[in-house]
Design a protein around this nucleic acid. Structure first.
Lengths: 145, 145
DNA sequence: TTATATGCTAAACCTGACTTTAGGTCAAGC
DNA sequence: GCTTGACCTAAAGTCAGGTTTAGCATATAA
């Protein structure tokens, strides 16, 4: 069992954030000692891992709370939880595609500024048409324009 | 040349957001007609593409504004702009790795809930150890736990 | 000529996710 | 017995990124 300070250090996350999550009900009835101090165990650690992941996957704390409540309700919510993860899966796949496109755009811009910096001006590179770009750059350019 | 309403439709973005961006100074001295109405041209369309991309790459509007200002200052800021894109490139690569990890976690959870739903309870799957998972799932699990 | 659509501004408001503040409890060490 | 450090709560404050409101101008169609 860990104190809030230990968990804060473990997850490199402010104590205030942990209390905020608890207030939102994200830790399902977390244990407290006789003087009201929170005791974090494996369950809470797993919850924090799930929170971090679902947040990165683009979910709001309210949606995550909904999921935590389903977990507490037991097997009768299995279908909903499954459905939720399949929905997330679809959205993360879209996010991955978009981020790959962003990467292509950035890589094109890196080439653009490499060229401009070498020539000390962007006057020439600014007007290069797709056909006159190196093949690998043209692909990036066409993916993103 | 396009009106704000046309651009709003074209980018599927509220008019209020376009005005908000303009107020922040993201469109470098955009043209207006004699009665003060904004006229959007190719330059502004390109600016919007850049904004969308840099936002997805995790930049704040203030940072994007900084970049726009550098653009206006001409060739003497080429090195800074290049540096900025190389920095972005690094960060987008990290984002891609993290998002791939999120995808692995979600895929593991999909398998978990598939199994639980088939068995109508999560009692068994909850206790499966990594060694007893199918190989492809174990890899996802170990990547993310 | 009046209704409708589209545009304008400044300023107030909103939301999610925290963070800070103010004031209090409690156990351990000096 | 008092100070220190770690914990507690409720409530207010913050910040980015918008959105809404109120009041007004302009242009075109009926």
């Amino acid at each position: 069992m860990y104190s809030i300070g230990e968990i804060s250090a473990m997850f490199n996350m402010p104590i205030s954030t942990l209390r905020y999550y608890d207030k939102k009900g994200l830790f399902l009835n977390i244990e407290r000692n006789s003087s009201g101090i929170r005791r974090f165990g494996q369950k809470e650690i797993e919850t924090l891992n799930v929170i971090e992941c679902l947040k990165k996957a683009g979910m709001s704390l309210d949606d995550i709370k909904l999921f935590m409540d389903w977990c507490q309700q037991g097997d009768k919510t299995l279908a909903q939880r499954k459905e939720m993860f399949y929905q997330r899966k679809k959205e993360v796949e879209v996010q991955l595609q978009e981020l790959q496109k962003v990467a292509d755009f950035i890589n094109y811009k890196c080439w653009y500024y490499d060229t401009a910096c070498n020539e000390k001006t962007e006057n020439r590179v600014k007007n290069i048409k797709a056909n006159d770009m190196p093949d690998n750059i043209r692909i990036l350019y066409e993916n993103t324009h």
